[in-house]
């Protein structure tokens, strides 16, 4: 049992983290005082998931029954078959991922316990993994979890405007779920799409683990990102990848500017000449 004061402090911290996160973009521009640095640091520490410890709630507690569905249990067995039976714990990460897909985008503590039982380790070993990786959500997210890349190239190309547009359009704060439970917005670090910055990743948990997709939407503008959200809301799947009309995949906009001819084969040593 956490003492009541610690509990209260934890709740406050939770509130602070989410609120300061949404304000932080403004705060960052406004001042460079150490305090605002600290607030930003605090929020950046907690962006993908809330806290490093669990607080019981009606929808997330260890007493909740939780099991993999039958279809997923097959996948679990398939995952386990990759590893020697005395190294089952290697399957923790894929199983957490599977549990997250099954449970609408987040892993409740009961699911972690279930995984611990399957791989025969103490639950804390699973908690350690789940808290380490920021892509495992330990609090509720929307059916479409929108992750805005906030790393330097995207930031330079306007990822903050993208995030602001998203938050404003959905009327939520960062890491908050919309009232219809459809969307939540988070921030994540570089996804390797710097060439087409800015980008967001959309994790689609609306169709369970069978229809789970994880798509990148690149070359975004604040207008385009709102369109994408609207399409998702209508149940459509916007075309993934670059949203730039003139770009193909990650090639230059408007077609190639160099390398027009056939690529030359690599020079080969004339072995006979030796």
């Amino acid at each position: 049992m956490l003492p009541p004061a610690a509990r209260l402090a934890a709740r406050r911290l939770l509130g602070l983290a989410t609120s300061s996160a949404s304000d932080s973009a403004a705060a960052r521009r406004l001042s460079r005082s150490p305090i605002s640095y600290a607030a930003a640091g605090c929020s950046s520490r907690l962006f993908s998931t809330a806290l490093n410890y669990h607080l019981d709630s009606p929808e997330n507690n260890p007493d909740m029954p939780w099991e993999f569905t039958e279809a997923n249990m097959k996948k679990v067995n398939e995952i386990l078959s990759h590893y020697p039976s005395n190294y089952k714990q290697s399957g923790i990460i894929p199983m957490l991922d599977l549990a997250q897909q099954q449970h609408g985008g987040w892993v409740p503590v009961a699911a972690m316990n279930a995984i611990a039982k399957i791989v025969e380790v103490a639950p804390i070993r699973v908690y350690e993994v789940a808290t380490f990786y920021t892509m495992f959500n330990r609090t509720k997210v929307g059916k479409y979890h929108l992750l805005v890349c906030g790393t330097t190239p995207c930031m330079i190309r306007g990822s903050r405007e993208i995030e602001e547009a998203l938050l404003e359009h959905l009327g939520v704060k960062r890491n908050e779920v919309t009232s219809d439970g459809l969307f939540s917005v988070g921030e994540m670090e570089c996804m390797g799409c710097c060439v087409n910055a800015p980008m967001i990743a959309v994790a689609d948990y609306s169709k369970g683990s069978e229809g789970y997709t994880y798509n990148y939407y690149e070359d975004l503008t604040p207008k385009r990102v709102v369109e994408i959200v609207e399409m998702l809301k209508r149940g459509e799947t916007p075309p993934r990848g670059t949203q730039h009309p003139e770009r193909k995949n990650c090639g230059p906009a408007g077609g190639n500017t160099t390398l027009h001819g056939e690529p030359k084969p690599p020079p080969c040593r004339d072995l006979d000449a030796c």
Binding site: R45, N52, Y53, H54, P62, V109, P123, I124
Partner: peptide
């Protein structure tokens, strides 16, 4: 943000 703990109480 790393910390030692028991995760659940």
């Amino acid at each position: 943000g790393e910390e030692i703990g028991t995760y659940v109480e």
